[in-house]
Structure formats: structure tokens, C-alpha cells
Simulated scan of single mutants.
Amino acid sequence: MAWDIATLILTPPGFDRNKKYPTIISVHPFGSCKEQTSSAVYGKALAEHGFVVIAFDASYQGESGGAPRWIESPSQRVADVSHVIDYAVTLPYVDAERIGGIGICGGGGYILNATLTEKRIKAAVGITPVNIGRLFREGFSQYNPLGALDAMAAQRTKEALGGELQVNELLPASPEAATAAGLTEIDVFEATDYYKTPRGQQPGGWTRMLFSHAQQTLAWDAFNFSETLMNQPMMVVIGQKAGAFGAYCDGMEAYGRATASKDRQLVSLQGWSHYDLYDQAEPVALAMEQMLPFLKQHVAGE
């Protein structure tokens, strides 16, 4: 079975489709969509500096195809990156020898994982990257991964027999609802502020997950084999204000394990949080200050 992947293609000022441009594949966070930070913030900034940027919706999410909806499949998310590159290299204005990747949050984990085996990616940047497998084994399963797997198995059997799908909403309905429920931990509250208010809310960014199809996520590791297979240049950008979703620790791990990388760089920003790096002007500017020369060197060849 095949389906379409929906993309947004951002182009540089003075774009000329008869020229070839360095190109960045931009991967959105878990629960997000292409219209949010992957295109509107980082994609826009990179396009302004001469890159073509392709931001896309994950399979089963946003405007991309795939059913049932709201599946979060790490293996599919990583495969999507290669499918988007397959499309990118057919575009006359994309330089197939100058392709890089970025990803934010879960997308940061996915782009780093994709880079392990997708050698058309010349360099990758994980922006506040989260290892979704680790998060599911820990906080998202309430530190009971075997219990979560048993519940998923029972629910999947129920659905196979015609029962109603269990779609989990991952966040409170509003910051006010989060406060009322005592959900004021920094990552949970700031995620709600981003996804559930005009700050970042978009029709495709549902922050939903089909519970019964998440089993494989618990056995997945974004950084497995990094010591051997991550030979491309890689950068990790993290905020030092750590939260429950674990991007600070995951970013440190991703950087620490990439010992085969030709140029590994860690950008650790004091005083900024995971969700600050989604769209807040100052930390985004600090991140871009480091990302831009890195990508220009290793992808654009400047």
C-alpha cells in the first residue's frame, strides 16, 4: 500500500528554478505538523539564507496519507525521510549532492536516526532532539512499559474485532486547563502553551496518538548504532532548562555517542527550554547562529 506525503517547499529570495540549490529536509516534532516550527520557524530562516527547505507531514498525520490516522511509527517516520529525499532529487532545482536534514523534538531524534543509514544526507541537526522510544518507555508509559504493551495488545485486539479506536489526546485543552489540573511541569505546560493557543496551533497539529499502534515505539532507540554509523557531520542544539520530555539528556546522549562523526558539535543554550527553541526569537536566533555556518559548510559547500 502507498500514499502521498504532503510537503511545503520553501525557496530562497530570487529563486530561479533553473538553478540548483542546497536543500534541507525538515522534520516536524511528535504530534506536530509541517505548518508549525519545522517550516514556519527553521524552514523560513534557512530559506532566507539560500536553502530550499522541504517540510513535510509524517505518514498518518497532518495532510499526508495513511490509515488509520494518528499513528506514531518511528520506523515509518524514518522511512518518510528517505521517501521525501527520493522526491527531492527529482526536482530540477535540488542539488542531489547537497542535501541536509534538520528536525525538532521527536523530529530531531528521527533525522539523526535517518542519517545513520541515509547517506544522501550530508549533515544533520537535531534541535532539542527527543528519543521517542526512551520517552515512551519512561514517562509516556508511566515507567511501566510492559504494562503499556499489555494494554496496547488488548486494545489492538478489540479494534481488530470492530471495537472503537482509542485515540489519546496528549496534552490538556489549554494552559488554563493544565494549571487547573496541576500539570505545571515545564515541558507539559509549555507544550500546551505552544500547541493549544494561537502561538503555534495549526489544524494538522493534533497532538493525538492512536494508542493501539504504538507498540514498536517502546522497542525503538533513536541513537542505536550511532557510534558506528553516524559518520556525517552532526549538530545537536539543546536548551539547558531541562524538562520531563528529556531533550537535554537525549541531546547530550546523541552528541556523546556520535564518535564516528566527521564533525560533531553540541550547542547548549543557557536559560532556554525545550519549547523556547520551537519559536522564541532569541533562542532560535542563537541556534541559527550556530546552525547556519555548519549547514553552509557541510551541505552547501561554502
Rank of each mutant, 00 (worst) to 15 (best):
T37D: 11
F15A: 00
A123G: 00
G243A: 11
V130C: 07
S39G: 10
V284S: 08
T197E: 04
N131A: 00
D4K: 15
L10Q: 13
F140V: 09
P92F: 10
D150E: 14
L10K: 02
S59P: 03
Q215A: 15
A124E: 04
L112Q: 08
E289V: 01
V130K: 10
G239P: 01
V89E: 11
P74S: 12
P13D: 07
S82R: 13
P233E: 07
Y60F: 14
V84S: 02
I186H: 06
G101Q: 09
P22C: 10
M235A: 02
R134I: 10
N231R: 11
A285W: 04
D263G: 04
T192C: 10
Q297Y: 00
A160Q: 15
E289G: 14
P233Q: 03
G200K: 00
Y278A: 05
Q270A: 06
L91A: 00
I121Y: 01
V27D: 05
L46I: 03
N224D: 14
Y143W: 15
G62Q: 01
L218T: 00
H28V: 04
A47H: 03
F294S: 03
A247F: 13
M209K: 11
E302C: 03
R156P: 06
D187C: 03
Q270E: 13
E138L: 12
D279K: 03
E164Y: 00
G271S: 02
T259Y: 10
Y143H: 15
G66I: 09
A222F: 01
A151W: 07
R120L: 09
E63R: 12
A96L: 01
R77W: 13
R98E: 05
R257I: 01
G65D: 05
A160M: 12
S212A: 12
S75H: 14
D57E: 05
D279H: 08
M1F: 08
D187R: 08
I25E: 09
W70P: 01
P12C: 08
T37W: 01
E159K: 04
A114E: 03
S273R: 06
G246H: 00
Q265E: 12
D57G: 00
G107E: 06
A242H: 11
G162I: 10
D221V: 04
E138M: 11
H298N: 05
P29D: 01
Q61W: 11
E164A: 12
E72S: 09
R69D: 03
W220A: 05
G243K: 10
A88G: 02
E159F: 01
N224V: 12
T192D: 07
P74K: 07
A55Y: 12
E190Q: 15
G182T: 06
G31L: 07
H49Y: 06
E63H: 14
G271T: 05
I25A: 03
E35I: 03
T228A: 13
Y255Q: 02
Q297T: 15
S26F: 04
L218W: 12
I99N: 06
S38P: 01
A153Q: 10
E48D: 14
V188P: 06
W272P: 02
H298M: 07
F136Q: 09
R257A: 02
F245M: 09
N113G: 08
L149I: 14
T11Y: 02
Q290F: 03
N224C: 08
P145R: 03
D263H: 12
L229N: 01
